[in-house]
Amino acid sequence: MQLLDGKKVSESLLAEIAVSVKELKEAGKKTPHLAAILVGNNPASEAYVGSKVKTCEQIGFASTLLRLEQDITEAALLEHIRNFNDNPDVDGILVQLPLPAHISESRVINTIDPAKDVDGFHPISLGRMVLGEPTFISATPNGIMMLLDYYKIETAGKNCVVIGRSNIVGTPMSILLSRNSNPGNCTVTLCHSRTQNLKEICLGADIIVAAIGRPNYVTADMVKEGAVVIDVGINRIDDPSRKSGSRLVGDVDFDQVAPKCSYITPVPGGVGKMTICALMNNTLLAVKGI
């Protein structure tokens, strides 16, 4: 079993992005500028946005963090997004999800200029991705593809099961893995909470991508020997043995599943690090032109 070390890989790829930023600056060209909007004070969202802003600093990006109150109206939030759309100094815009219940995530995503949609959530970005056209690819699926490529994991002709059908991870992941590309050329089965015989389906998989948002959902009896397992989940569970009283686990029962795998991502330190790396790469592409 080998760990797919997202921390190590992201550090390597971010170092390459930092070199590109330095070259842009030395050539008198624009410094990439990422604008983030955080609504409310959700601790997880605070941590995610903080990591993104810190990464911008490390690689030489400019960044703006706009903090808004939990009770901000949808109309006011959309106006802030339009202001960033109209600001020529801003190259990429991200609105940290989830949003308060009174705000439509769909309206927010649709308001972001597709040319600045570095999260890759806009319908135009998703449509171009499906067609295989140049676009911003959703950061988590893109980060997973980067990870597979870095470790030279053979995907062509492999059976892949993606568990979870969200527009942010599961659905784009299934499309990317099935495309005529490297990594890619998998035969993909997209599963979800209504899938019958999930265990049997997973046992036929050479690659499993777990993105269902349920702690320790994928168990050892669902994974065949030698499978590659990508764990997208980040779930906080109670753990009295920890000072904090809780710990992070993925959607995969790591301790039981790992011994059966050829490769597996840890949680934390796996896909999450690659997501930020892919976001930064999208912002660099926004400056250079896709």
Rank of each mutant, 00 (worst) to 15 (best):
Ser10Ala: 10
Lys7Thr: 02
Arg128Phe: 01
Ile124Glu: 15
Gly170Phe: 03
Phe84Leu: 15
Gly204Arg: 14
Arg214His: 13
Ile124Arg: 13
Gly157Asn: 02
Met1Arg: 03
Arg107Ser: 14
Gly289Phe: 04
Phe136His: 12
Arg165Lys: 14
Leu131Tyr: 06
Ile103Met: 06
Ile290Phe: 13
Val118Met: 12
Val252Asp: 10
Met274Asn: 07
Ile168Met: 07
Gly157Val: 02
Gly213Trp: 03
Pro100Arg: 01
Tyr150Leu: 08
Ser181Asn: 12
Ala115Ile: 10
Ala205Lys: 07
Lys52Met: 00
Lys273Trp: 11
Pro114Ile: 00
Val130His: 09
Ile201Pro: 01
Ala18Ile: 03
Lys243Val: 14
Leu248Phe: 10
Val228His: 09
Gly60His: 02
Leu34Thr: 01
Asn185Gln: 13
Ser193Asp: 08
Met280Tyr: 09
Arg128Lys: 15
Val39Arg: 03
Glu23His: 05
Val118Cys: 11
Ala101Asn: 15
His122Cys: 12
Ser241Asp: 12
Gln58Cys: 07
Leu77Gly: 03
Leu24Ser: 06
Leu4Thr: 08
Gly143Met: 05
Phe136Val: 10
Pro123Cys: 09
Leu248Asn: 10
Val53Thr: 13
Ala211Arg: 08
Thr155Asn: 08
His122Tyr: 10
Arg242Lys: 15
Ile168His: 04
Lys224Leu: 08
Val232Phe: 11
Ile103Lys: 00
Tyr217Ala: 12
Val229His: 08
Asp71Val: 07
Cys160Gln: 01
Leu203Gln: 14
Cys277Trp: 00
Leu24Lys: 04
Ile137Cys: 07
